[in-house]
Amino acid sequence: MSSVEVGTELPPLTVTVRRENLVRYAGASGDFNPIHWNDRMAVALGLPGVIAHGMLTMASAARVVTDWLSDPADLIEYGVRFTKPVVVPDDDKGATITFSAKVDKVADGRAEIDITAVCGDEKVLGRARAVVRVS
């Protein structure tokens, strides 16, 4: 991270989410809501099928920023809105999410970064923004 200025683009990241990833995340996070592993329950609640944990998408989006920082401790603020569910089909292909990020503001030793998360044609996160310390 040599020079940080408004408009600097961070290296993008593409993540594939399969059912196996949802099972792993459920176990590691303790979030066993059945909409993340049980099609029957997901459909009963009006969803197209099993969806990824919003917090898993948020964790992947954070990687765009923490992979770019030399020290993840420089992340001081991070927020997202969950605008669309990420539907994860029961196949080998899974769902693919592409993350990109751009510096929107630099002031007082802090940079504000806007993150975009796209799955298919849809933005799955809204107002995703990270504030980091920069030297």
Partner: peptide
């Protein structure tokens, strides 16, 4: 947790590891 989110960052491994940022949500649960 780092394995589950697919994050290979070395900062999240070892005796001096820090947690990935969203681990804070697990602690709030």
């Amino acid at each position: 947790f780092a394995e589950a989110i697919g994050d290979p960052n070395p900062a999240y491994r070892g005796d001096d590891a820090v947690a990935p940022p969203t681990f804070a949500f697990v602690l709030s649960a």
